[in-house]
Every structure is written in structure tokens, then in C-alpha cells.
């Protein structure tokens, strides 16, 4: 087992775009590490800052928020989300948590390559942070 597989990466996906995007990756049989846990939500805007910090405290190594970006069906949700993630970063810094362990990105229903890239980069970031 490679060190990547031992990580626990929480991937927050949206009903409208990134969750079906993750399915597309599966339909194409593209491979990635099993240390990845995809949860779907109507929109990640619902999570308070504590959710992310608590998850890290519980033992989640990295969180990728795969938002719908400009495809987001909810009024004003994306700007709010991105502001909140900014505040989470600030608190992560305060608490000495490497900020590369949290990533906000946009994944569409057919963004296969981008999906894999985000996971790969997150794994590298976490391992680098752990090594440091």
C-alpha cells in the first residue's frame, strides 16, 4: 500500500455537478486512491467554518470542496462559500494547520482530468505537509 492510500480525504461534492462528475470518472474506469470519501450536498455553502476544523481534528487529512462554481443554481451561494473558505484558511493558520489541506475548486459533470488532478495534488500536499 502506498502512503497516499492511507490518507483520508473528504471530498464534498454538489448534487448538480461534481457528484455526477465523480460518477463520470468511474464510468471511464479511471483509477484513484481509495483513501477518498465523497459526500454529496445540495451546496457546500451550508457548512460552517467549524465543520472543516472539526473534521481535521477528527482525523481527516484533507478536504476538497468541489463546488459547482458558475453552474451553481443557488443565488449568491458561491461567493458566500468562497468567502467562508477564506475565513477557514485564516483559522487554520491560527491553529497551525497547513492550509494546503483544504481546497476549494469547481468540478463539472464531465471534468474527469480535473477531478483526478485535484486528488493527486491534495495527496501530494498532505504528504509534503506531514513530512515537514
Amino acid at each position: 500500500m502506498s502512503p497516499e492510500d492511507d490518507l483520508k480525504i473528504l471530498i464534498i461534492t454538489t448534487m448538480i455537478s461534481s457528484y455526477p462528475g465523480a460518477n463520470t470518472v468511474g464510468q471511464a474506469r479511471l483509477q484513484y486512491s481509495p483513501g477518498t470519501f465523497i459526500v454529496r450536498v445540495p451546496d457546500p455553502v451550508m457548512f460552517p467554518e467549524e465543520f472543516y476544523l472539526d473534521s481535521f481534528a477528527k482525523g481527516i487529512d484533507g478536504i476538497i470542496i468541489m463546488s459547482s462554481g458558475s453552474d451553481c443554481p443557488y443565488e449568491g451561494a458561491y461567493p458566500r462559500l468562497s468567502k467562508r473558505v477564506g475565513r477557514v484558511y485564516a483559522r487554520m493558520k491560527e491553529q497551525g494547520i497547513d492550509t494546503s489541506r483544504l481546497k476549494l475548486t469547481t468540478i463539472c459533470t464531465v471534468c474527469k482530468a480535473a477531478f483526478l488532478k485535484e486528488i493527486r495534488e491534495m495527496q501530494q500536499n498532505i504528504l509534503k505537509a506531514k513530512a515537514a
Binding site: V39, V45, M46, F47, E49, P73
Partner: peptide, 30 residues
């Protein structure tokens, strides 16, 4: 519309989106 923007802002967690509550997500992470 159930976007949940209000959920994140509620300190006592009094507001939730039905079917997608924060308690549920916390327990899933656990």
C-alpha cells in the same frame, strides 16, 4: 430553495436543510 446558506451562519445549529442536517454530516465524518 434549500441552499443551506442560512445553516452555516446559525451558531446554535437551529436551522438545517431537511434531509441534509449538519448533525448528519458530522456523524458521517465520525
Amino acid at each position: 430553495v434549500g441552499c443551506g446558506a442560512c445553516v452555516a451562519a446559525c451558531p446554535p445549529r437551529a436551522v438545517n436543510v431537511a434531509g441534509w442536517t449538519l448533525d448528519q454530516f458530522d456523524a458521517m465524518v465520525d
